[in-house]
Design a binder for these strands. Sequence first.
RNA 1: GCGCUUGUGGCGGAAUUGGUAGACGCGCCAGACUUAGGAUCUGGUAUCUCCGAUGUGCAGGUUCGAGUCCUGUCAGGCGCACCA
Length: 1026
Amino acid sequence: MEYNFREIEQKWQQKWVEEKTYQVAEDKSKPKFYVLNMFPYPSGAGLHVGHPLGYIASDIYARFKRLQGYNVLNPMGYDAYGLPAEQYAIQTGQHPEKTTFQNIDRYREQLDKIGFCFDWDREVRTCAPGYYKWTQWAFQKMFGSFFSKSPLPTSPKGEESHAAGKARPIEELVDFFEQKGTEGLEDFGVAQTENLMFTAEEWNSWDEKKKSDVLMNYRIAFMGETMVNWCAGLGTVLANDEVVDGVSVRGGFPVEQKKMRQWCLRVSAYAQRLLDGLDTIEWSDSIKETQKNWIGRSEGTEVQFKIASPLPTSPKGEESHAACSSTENLTANNPDGNHSPLGETEGASFTIFTTRADTMFGVTFMVLAPESELVEKVTTAEQKAAVEEYIKYVKGRTERERMIDHKVTGVFSGSYAINPFTGEKNPIWISEYVLAGYGTGAIMAVPAHDSRDYAFAKHFGLPIIPLIEGADVSEESYDAKEGIVCNSPRKDVKPYIDFSLNGLTVKEAIAATKKYVKEAGIGRVKVNYRLRDAIFSRQRYWGEPFPVYYKNGIPTMIPEECLPIELPEVDKFLPTETGEPPLGNATVWAWDEVNKKIVENKKIDNKTVFPIELYTMPGFAGSSAYYLRYMDPHNDQALVSKDADEYWQNVDLYVGGSEHATGHLIYSRFWNKFLFDLGVSCKEEPFQKLINQGMIQGRSNFVYRIKDTNTFVTLEKKDQYDVTPIHVDVNIVSADVLDVEAFKAWRPEYNTAEFILNDEGKYVCGWAVEKMSKSMFNVVNPDMIVEKFGADTLRLYEMFLGPVEQSKPWDTNGIDGCHRFLKKLWKFMTSPLPTSPKGEESHAACSSTDNQTANNPDGNHSPLGETVGASKEELKALHTLIKKETADIEAFSYNTTIAAFMVCLNELTKLKSESREVKETLAILLAPFCPHLAEEFWHLLGHTTTVCDAPWPAFNEDYLKEDSVKMMVAFNGKARFPLEFPADVTKEDAEKAALENPQSAKWMEGFTVAKVIVVPGKMINVVLKK
RNA sequence: GCGCUUGUGGCGGAAUUGGUAGACGCGCCAGACUUAGGAUCUGGUAUCUCCGAUGUGCAGGUUCGAGUCCUGUCAGGCGCACCA
């Protein structure tokens, strides 16, 4: 009987569908386990061998957990909205839904061939109205919420407040404004875009529009005017993680900074909780570090500096310098001082953020970001032209240019700021090296201890004052945060204030300065985060529409009971002629407030019928809470029912690529924390354990064309010519040798090309390991492997390749080894062959063999030889595997599990094992890796139920116990020869035996024994001395 | 520049708390069976000056003993990158 994988796999895949083997329901009698894969974007290229790697790894774990008695949820779905389908639609006119569904069908077909235990009844598609209803719903909830560290006086009493703050209904904030305006609001740590100030009277006097605008400053989902990444090539804005090296990740179009009105999510409000949560989850250090980096918490100090020069509106520029001296009466301790030179009393100072408060005495200049609103205020008349020219230069530089060359540029504003610690007037410069979006958009420059300030000071000839004992700043700045502070204040200068940091360590000096700044009322301790609010709107068609209409300019939520608001039909997917997003092409896209339905645009009267939002949501919207939806995918009353959420809790094991570290994995954590605050999700972190599967790289092949000719040279000779490498399809190269005719057929433009072959008459290709992608022509399709070797071999091989988390090149060389193993296993499990002519009858034999014993090797063997009890050796081999596999699957060390399986099989084959116990156990142990074959074995052993529900074999230590142990005898740590001992040998006996052994004499000659170290069961090390 | 991570045969990779380095597989070599072999089976396979010595990127250290721990250093991969 041959191992006919095609027949077996087809049979079981069909059976699993028929018997709904993988359907799962809440079952309170069993512990739950939730396994999740990052759902795929169904691209037109289909799956390649890299995709299933993570799916197989999680499938094995899911099956293993099920065998251990868990109720396992292992769902799958599609991240179906996205740019490629839309770009394709623009080019071909095909509706993106059509191509998306085609791609989904293709994916499904490919996935089905690999034998995953997905519960397809729970499939979700982000583009399905029943799904995105809840995306829209969550957005509306965010719109209706604000975030504060502690409850407002207007919040309901007795609520449990999260240490780092939580989302609360916006109505609480409105009540607060009605009573107090913004007075005292800062005490509650309300997350906001800008620090607005208004009174209750002002608030109450404002109209709806104004109130709406003000509330946008606080809402978690809000409309904001922000600098966005505008991608003209795609006609849309992009999130930071969708832009790499100044170009779009999708399509590679240039991206520029532009100020636009966009929907945003106040992710920054959750910065601290996103950071804190990392300590509670089992993710790799590298992903946690990446997220910490992205969140970018930095604890520092905000310090106010007063501006010491007249405003540019002062009549004569010439006088501005003279004015400097007249401001010396403004001291740090005199906030009520006469501000007259500055015209207005407000705005006469500005705030900077620093983490190096200890360096206050080394400030020699100040720098503002070019985009800072302060620039206008501090620019003097005489510097106006220079500043304007500089701003123009900065605006002309793209994000990319700024990223690539960090050249030192800047311009003097003409104004000075008074250092509150030294009283010195520090010139205020404007430079692109200071970012508007971080801190306050203004810094104090300490060139001695900051390399960027140092470069700037050197370039513009500004003074550099070292503040740390022994720091040599003649060549470069001393950035380290360690050492003893000096020059603070300088000994030769009369102190300006009664404050000194000299002699303190940097750490102490920072603390002392913070204390002083607070007490003197010139600043405060501040924590800044790099994490920015997420831009949440896109000017595209193929995304979730916003459930928002514009009531006389006020963004208004469509009532919750009317959701979902379905994506309208359009006749083209491009922006309209007036530059509106594609939804501007829709003719039925207006909200009838009275009848609560979507109506034709022409009915818009701005009385009861209003225009609907034309933006759509970004890709991460639909992927942020999908894991909750899988728990209860058909519920149309709630995102997830309380029951389902409480049963499934959160994902126990999440498997996916590390490329989502700063995108999806931040957004979904944020989204889930918000839903947690709402009480929708009972767990604050969505993904308890995260495994990042490595990338399977492809082996790209190249041919070498001599430049400006139509001649190709083989690899060996390529260095003799000036050649251009050209990628070659992986399918027309075998063992590095190109099929020249196939190449010509593949690339007709080279039909007449000449190929210079090597001495053996072959064309040898060059190769490199690269990411698997269509454009490299190195994509290996899993279907081909399944066709040739079967899904079980593919599964086994992908796991045998190496640790799951490690990237590795795809190489088909080893696949034979895995296939061979399964064939050997087949032979072992199905031998001895049936004595009865018909295979069908063999099953009956199972029950009729009870009378046969282990001591009856001559017994009548039924197909799977279940007549014989297992011998001691067999049980030892088997239980070694049970132990190893159980521990290794838990540790995701699948490659070593497979190795152990191979060892066990070799052992059992040698022992000619025919025991039913052994074979049944092997079938179960095989089930996570090769489910088809395991089912077949299970079935051949006479079982009628699925192997998925078999009990995981219990490991019995007794079978591993040996009567004797082998111990290595070593001299000075060098192993020399092994000795056998009874298992219970004492240290003394072992030592004695080792020293007395004749072999030892050779090694001990000329030495005396200094001591002997006996490691029980392992080794006897004799330490020798001359 | 900062952070994370990885360096072991011809190749992919194994090595609980430090305790026989190279499991398992590929490849290669030899043999068996064959009309045949890209089938199957058996044996071998780190290196060298081969009764011995040397070997886990490199240089030190701790230890009776180091792939494993410590210090420094080099190289590759990934992430962040003017974040004050």
